[in-house]
Amino acid sequence: MIALLRRDLRLAIRAGGGFGLGVAFFLILCALVPFGVGPDTAALQPIAPGILWLGALLACLLSLDRIFALDHEDGSLDLLATSPLPLEGAVAIKALAHWITTGLPLIVAAPLFGILLHLPGAAVPALLASLLLGTPALSMLGAFGAAVTVGLRRGGLLLSLLVLPLYIPTLIFGTEMIRRGQEGGDTGTPLLFLAGITAGVLAVIPFAAAAALRVNLR
């Protein structure tokens, strides 16, 4: 399992763009929003939590199809399926690798990009906590979507169509948490919901994703 994680991370570094592209996309999105809604703090501040979460979500979506598509093309997926490693474990590890290469850089960058959107400093802890708790669920659900669509023509578009609705609860509780942090309110409730969703997703979705992979391999 560790070997698979190390290989995926090494590939992400060598292939380039693994760590950087998602963050670059996130930056562009945060830079474009003020052009759309105007530069006023009054306009930007209320929507900052939503923009930051949407940016993280879309940046995450960009690299989802690579979770399984490359391994499917070069036959690695067949070999992994015949290996002693349970496919559920392989799915979880690949989702983890996706989170490390995409989710983690986004979390690090988010407070900086929050400044661009006039997010008050008081909301930064809530921002970090919500992303830290929420993005693992995004990667795992994304791995499920990638497993369902691997090997399909037009899989990429279908992938977003399938995965984005699954992101709704995480998005709702994530932004709500930052909003409450911004207003100095109680962030405990959305935090618990967010953590609960992520825990449930991490526990159950690997099985669904592995089942979908097995169907797609035969």
């Binding site: 070997a3 698979l4 290989r7 090494r10 590939l11 060598r14 292939a15 391994d71 093309e73 070069d74 036959g75 690695s76 067949d78 070999l79 992994l80 290996s83 002693p84 490693l85």
Partner: peptide, 22 residues
């Protein structure tokens, strides 16, 4: 089978060591 499950970005040894570990 027809596809060898190789990663172009890894060296020959790394590719083989990976599958040996798995």
């Amino acid at each position: 089978a027809h596809a060898d499950g190789l990663k172009g970005a890894l060296t020959v040894t790394e590719n083989l060591a990976f599958w040996a570990q798995i």
